[in-house]
Design a protein around this nucleic acid. Sequence first.
RNA 1: GCGCCCGUAGCUCAGCAGGAUAGAGCACCAGAUUCCUAAUCUGGGGGCCAUGGGUUCGAAUCCCGUCGGGCGCACCA
Length: 592
Amino acid sequence: MRRDWANRAAMTDARINLHADFASVIDTALTALEAAGTLPAGLPRGAVTCEPPRDPSHGDLSTNAAMVLAKPAGTNPRALAALLVAELEKEPRVVSAEIAGPGFINLRLTDDAWRGELALIAQSAADYGRSQMGGGRVVNVEYVSANPTGPMHMGHCRGAVVGDALADLLAYAGHKVIKEYYVNDAGAQVDVLARSVHMRYLEALGQSIEIPEGLYPGDYLVPVGQALVEEFGDTYKEAPESDWLILFRTRAVAAMMDMIRADLATLGIRHDLFSSEAELQASGKVDAAEQYLRSHDLIYDGLLEAPKGKTLDDWEPVELPLFRSTKFGDDQDRPIKKSNGAWTYFGADLAYHFQKSQNADALVDIWGADHAGTVKRIKAAVAALTSAEGGTAKPFEVKLVQMVQLLRDGQPVKMSKRAGTFVTLSDVVDEVGKDVVRFTMLTRKPDAQMDFDFAKVVEASKDNPVFYVQYAHARICRNLKKGADEGFMPSAENLGLLGEEELALVKLAAQFPRTVEAAAVAREPHRIAFFLHDLASAFHSYYNLGNDRPEKRFIVAHDSALTAARLFLAAQIGQVVRNGLALLGVVAAEEL
RNA sequence: GCGCCCGUAGCUCAGCAGGAUAGAGCACCAGAUUCCUAAUCUGGGGGCCAUGGGUUCGAAUCCCGUCGGGCGCACCA
């Protein structure tokens, strides 16, 4: 009996997975046809795909090459398909190559090819699915960046989870990733924070206080006030604001960031880098960016146009330093400084992105949809800053995460930090757990709005799809343990005993690497979540075959060779589930 | 008025850079537990893919219009 899988496992030092491998098999076949003069040289291969057909009865792999290339090759799809089929049939792992429909070529691979993939999973283990696609390029992913004025609330949750999963996904796909958080500690809102903390400071000194309208009333500031009393006594009780504002602001921001870091930690999120807007401004980097852009005539002093679609009674045109974002497709040029001389948010943000771009090959920002209006100007700024002296602009994407509508029993929850009415992230995580929160946020694409009914999620957390996937993993672990207890160890010795139903599981698991790459390219981590659900579903189905057909169980006591092969299969499916869950930051528990 | 996002089963959502007969979960109906623990499985009903055009071998997917929903349109952050 041939043992192709073993040979392949031995010779594929590079550990090429089957899907990636066959994309190159098709490519090679086309090259051969071109070399033989059968096809014109230089056909555009960009649109050629190699993927499993939706309907598995069509075969293991399918390519559209004949349909896509027929026109440029000056022939018809089926004729081209016939040529390609003849070439592909030379590949030893191809059992059959058939032309179907308008010109699809469906490939059926030998069972040993799939057994080889199973062995590859075992060999690669935690690295099965890892890709070199990113080529080590440095990608900066900035996400969360919530204002340091209070604890994280559920409005921040989606961007936090999506950003974190995306960062991990890009890293897994071969990028060097920097996870960054931009701390907005320079605007008016942190002065409001400082004044709010001063009230709590007075309170801690025994005064009875009433938080005025416009300050943050949340009691999470109480301990900050108490800490300031412990450190400074009543020094700032009667002092004018100018004496304490900066000190209180600094202490308050630090306290808020500690709180935010703790909140993020409950979701398993840890940033590599926290960049302070205040420090950025103090370092002179904003001025430097302005000078740079001025020297390329991308910033000029001009009159700010009145906002469109809005009538402001007190609108007066003023001259401000403006960035020429219209040159890059924005609706109007944007001010980088206010009339009082302070930087606008945009002015500082522009310099911040310049700084990021100098330390990375590509930038990704995760923003809430409520900031969609500012995407054009910041993209314009990055394009200007990174290509003002020619060359192509640094790749920069803004990924918008749509709003999460928070509900409680179907009723919208109005969240306001100023009113102190918001659902905190840690409340929800405490209630339903990190895994449920992460998985819930990752089982939909980010650019559609979603409802998050707090009560419903708490109540239905046991029905959450995350448990479905985790249960599959736990089932696998339990069976491996049971097998070990009975003296059976997984082994690749007799994978030939695995038949069609078992190999169907392998075929699905084998799609993990290409799913990782596709998800990374599209910046869509949710694809991993759906893949895992599909894989878990296939596993559960297979597992239940054993209910009526004991010979289909993983452990078949009288057949140790079969049991060893089945347990090997189970172990590898578990490995893929584990790899996927790890990517999503969800625990792959061994028992539930 | 302008910009961005969305519209797929009763509900919540997938649909893999245009592919073959549009899928899953929940809910509903009917079944499977002396079993490798059923947090599971099997089967069933349920769709003008909002709508009208266009592009092509082929459109839920790309382009334009319309309708509907969301977000935004400060020198705020």
